[in-house]
Every structure is written in structure tokens, then in C-alpha cells.
């Protein structure tokens, strides 16, 4: 455990190990997303009530899952950075934030588009959409706070604290929004609220979720490597590496 943490301290070690892991996750992401797309769009049966508009679930739900998971990972990285002063953890948290915000946007957009055939309107204060919107603001806050500091280290620590505060609040926000929604809109139909999905509807969803997660891991590895280059540009090993990759 401690040996592993000590290794993580070294950006050089992370750079080397991520070079090996990265292709694996890109291949997994490409395959899973392709299979999931073809299966979900063409082979999964249409929903008996919503018809083919139900196929939006295959991008909406994975994006929503990922949006929440990325915020949690960001907070965990922030904690690791604050407790053990591991620079790589902060780099990971830095590159995760924009992807998380993008995924939140995808969940919001696909939810809004889904709303047109289902509710007849682009926006409903649906419980899931409302919590996603709040999550988007939380992401924007973390990104803006990190950028507002002139010293990178202060920005990193401030963003870590905010991510941890946010992650404690996310379940509270989620439950209070759900409660608020059931109080005000008891009879409305939630887009993904029903469990009436058959196995051949579930399977592509699971594949898409795994594909989105692989994409997230691959992209995070790739962008963390870039972030290492950016922050460690003065280090000797980075320069040697640059000369090697000519």
C-alpha cells in the first residue's frame, strides 16, 4: 500500500505506467461504444409506450452516471492530494473537471431532447434534470475557483476543498430535490423512472455505461500525461523524453 502510494508520488512513474494502460482503455472504449451504439440504436426493441425515443436512454443514463462518478473521483483525488501531497492526484482532478462538466451537459441536453416527445416540452423541472443542472453549477464552480487563483498550488488546494464540500452535498441535494419533486409533481411520469425494461433493453445500456467509463479512464490517463508535460516541463526526464519521441 505504502509502496504504491510512494510510487504514485512520482509523475515519471505515472507517465510510464499510463503509457501502457492507455491503449487498453481506448480499445475497450471504442469496442464497447461501437457495440453498444449498434445494439442500442438498431437491435434493442422499442419501448411500448415511448417508442423509439426511448433509445435516448443509451446516452442519457451513461452520461448521467459518469457525471456523478467523475465528481466523486475528483473529490477523492482532491483528498489524496491534500492528505499525501501527491501532485499526480491533483493533475488527475484538474483534467477530470471539464470532462465531468461535458458529461453533465450531455445528460442535460439528451434529457431535454427526450422531454419533447415525452412531455411535449424542452424543459421540465424533473428531479433528475434538476439535480443534473445543480451538478453542472458545482462543476463550473470548481473549474472557476481553480482558475481564479494566480498561484497554481493555492488553486489546486482550493479546488480540492470545494470538491470535497460538494461531494458531501451531492447526496443531500439529490435527496432533497427528489423529495421536492414528488411533493410538487406527484403524477408526472419520470423519463427513466420505470423498471419495465427487458433484458435486451438492459444489455446495451450496460455496455454503453462500461464504454463511457472506459472512455473516461482513457481520456483521463491521456490528459494527465499532458498535464505532467505541462507542469514538469523543467524536469530533466521530460526533456529527455521529448528528445526520444522525435
Amino acid at each position: 500500500m505504502w509502496a504504491f502510494i510512494n510510487k504514485l508520488r512520482s509523475p515519471k512513474w505515472f507517465y510510464a505506467i499510463s503509457a501502457k494502460l492507455q491503449p487498453l482503455f481506448w480499445v475497450a472504449a471504442t469496442l464497447l461504444l461501437l457495440v453498444g451504439t449498434v445494439w442500442g440504436l438498431a437491435f434493442a426493441p422499442a419501448d411500448y409506450q415511448q417508442g423509439n425515443s426511448f433509445r435516448i436512454i443509451y446516452v442519457h443514463v451513461p452520461a448521467a452516471f459518469l457525471a456523478q462518478s467523475i465528481f466523486v473521483s475528483m473529490a477523492v483525488s482532491g483528498l489524496v492530494f491534500m492528505v499525501w501531497k501527491i501532485k499526480v492526484a491533483d493533475m488527475v482532478a484538474t483534467v477530470m473537471a471539464p470532462l465531468g462538466a461535458a458529461m453533465t451537459f450531455v445528460a442535460l441536453f439528451s434529457g431535454a431532447v427526450w422531454g419533447v416527445p415525452t412531455w411535449g416540452t424542452w424543459w421540465m423541472w424533473d428531479a433528475r434534470l434538476t439535480s443534473m443542472l445543480i451538478l453542472l453549477f458545482l462543476y463550473l464552480g470548481v473549474i472557476a475557483l481553480r482558475g481564479a487563483f494566480s498561484s497554481r498550488d493555492s488553486g489546486s488546494r482550493a479546488a480540492s476543498v470545494l470538491a470535497m464540500v460538494g461531494v458531501i452535498n451531492i447526496p443531500i441535494i439529490k435527496y432533497s430535490v427528489d423529495w421536492w419533486y414528488t411533493l410538487h409533481q406527484p403524477a408526472t411520469f419520470t423519463i427513466t423512472g420505470r423498471a419495465a425494461m427487458t433484458m435486451d433493453m438492459w444489455a446495451p445500456l450496460l455496455i454503453m455505461v462500461l464504454g463511457f467509463y472506459s472512455f473516461f479512464i482513457a481520456l483521463t490517463l491521456m490528459r494527465t500525461r499532458s498535464e505532467i508535460l505541462r507542469r514538469e516541463a523543467n524536469k530533466r526526464w521530460v526533456r529527455e523524453l521529448a528528445e526520444e519521441t522525435n
Binding site: I134, F137, L138, L140, G141, A144, L145, A148, L162, V165, G166, N169, I173, S176, V177
Partner: peptide
Amino acid sequence: LLSLLVLPLYI
């Protein structure tokens, strides 16, 4: 920035 950080947490 303060309002951006704090308002979502107030919900």
C-alpha cells in the same frame, strides 16, 4: 465567484 460556489450548496 462566491455566489457561483455557494448558491448550489444552498438548495
